[in-house]
Amino acid sequence: MTKKDIFIVSAFKENSVWKQILGICSSLAVTNLMLNSLIMGLGVIFSLALANYTISLIRSYTPRSVRMMAQTLIIGAYVIIVDILLKAWMPEISKQLGPYVGLIITNCILMGRAEAFASQNKPVDAMIDGIGAGVGYTLVLLLIAFVRELFGFGTLFGFRVMGAGWTNWSIMVMAPSAFFILALMIWAINTYYYKGAK
């Protein structure tokens, strides 16, 4: 597989959210605003790419018995970096994201990619796979957030889009809408992108 193939497969064909239904927790919780989703996505891309790189570097020295723990600690270290950077540079957003930045550690996408790809492949390939999976995840987040912010607040990235007469749909701000939108998205993708190929 060329590097471009690795990226495309992990970002689209095997997208963690819509194909493997991983990492749903955070993808639902932060998607009420597009800006939050983008920052969250960047945080995931950063920690996923670097964690994959590091895990792949030490893959032949890690004993099997402590592999999971080592992976968790490596991921944790990068997530702490993301958290500290956010607190320092964007305290407002860091507060809104709350515990969900820390929850990147238990995001199944990170463990999934570490197990499935990084522990068996070369460091650079693993990093590209991490970026791909992160971009795929961010894409889903932004799509859900687009619908929720547009209808829930009448804005996109905080800029007013809907006219003055627009009434906000309060359901879009609340939890159930996230479930519905993700479900509809998975439905559409299964039907048109995978053409029912199971």
Binding site: I21, P176, S177, A178, F179, F180, L182, A183, I186, W187, A188, I189, N190, T191, G196
Partner: peptide, 14 residues
């Protein structure tokens, strides 16, 4: 067909 499994579970959860 496209909604089976995760899709329908998400709608029920919603």
């Amino acid at each position: 067909a496209g909604l089976q499994g995760a899709g329908i579970s998400l709608i029920i959860t919603g």
